[in-house]
Simulated assay, not measured.
Amino acid sequence: MMALKGYRVVELVGLAPAPFCGLILSDFGAQVIRVDRPHSKQPDCLKRGKKSFHIDLKSSDGKQVFRRLTQTADVVIEPFRPGVMENLGLGPKDLMTNNEKLIYARLTGYGQTGPMAKRAGHDINYLALSGILSILGTAKTPSPPINLLGDFAGGGLLCSLGICMALLERTKSGKGQVVDSSITEGTAYVSSWIWHSMSDKSTVKDMVWLQPGQRERNLLDGGTPFYRCYLTKDNKHMAVGALEPQFYDKFTEILELDTNLYNRYDFTKWHQLTEKLSQIFATKTQKEWIQVFDGTDACVSPVLEIDSVQQYGHHIDRQSFFSDGTPKPSPILSRTPTLRDNNNNNSNEEMVDKELLIDMGYTEQEINLLVTNKTIEIGIDFNSKL
Rank of each mutant, 00 (worst) to 15 (best):
N125M: 06
A117C: 07
D200P: 09
A120M: 10
A128E: 08
R217A: 14
S160A: 15
S181A: 13
G137W: 01
L127W: 01
L158P: 06
K205M: 01
T113Q: 13
A117I: 02
K118D: 07
L161W: 04
Q211C: 06
S143D: 11
G131I: 02
L158F: 08
V204F: 05
A120F: 02
L161E: 11
K201Y: 13
K175I: 09
L148Y: 06
S199H: 06
H122N: 11
I183A: 07
D180I: 05
M116Q: 10
M198G: 13
V178P: 03
L133Y: 02
G176D: 01
S182P: 06
P115Q: 02
I183P: 00
S199E: 02
S130V: 11
G162S: 12
P144A: 12
D206V: 03
G213R: 00
L129N: 14
E216G: 04
D200Y: 04
M116F: 14
M165L: 15
C164W: 00
T187I: 07
T113A: 12
D123I: 01
A153V: 14
V178I: 14
S173I: 07
R119F: 10
G186P: 05
L161P: 10
A166C: 01
K175P: 03
G162I: 12
R215A: 09
A139I: 00
I183F: 11
C159K: 07
N125K: 06
S182G: 10
S191K: 10
T184Y: 07
G174F: 01
R217Q: 14
A117W: 05
L168P: 02
Q214T: 15
D200M: 01
L161I: 15
S160R: 12
P142H: 01
L148R: 01
S192A: 12
L136A: 06
W209D: 07
L161N: 09
W193G: 02
G137Q: 05
L127C: 02
T203M: 10
G137K: 00
I183N: 08
G137C: 01
L148Q: 10
I163W: 09
A128C: 07
G155K: 11
R170L: 08
L129W: 02
G174K: 09
T184F: 08
G162A: 14
G137N: 10
H122D: 06
P212L: 00
G121Y: 03
I135E: 03
V178L: 12
P144I: 00
V204W: 08
P212E: 08
C164M: 15
E185M: 05
F152L: 15
T113P: 04
I194V: 14
S181V: 03
F152G: 02
G150K: 10
Q211L: 05
E169Q: 15
G121D: 07
S191A: 15
S181M: 12
W193E: 11
A188W: 13
V179E: 10
P115W: 09
K118G: 05
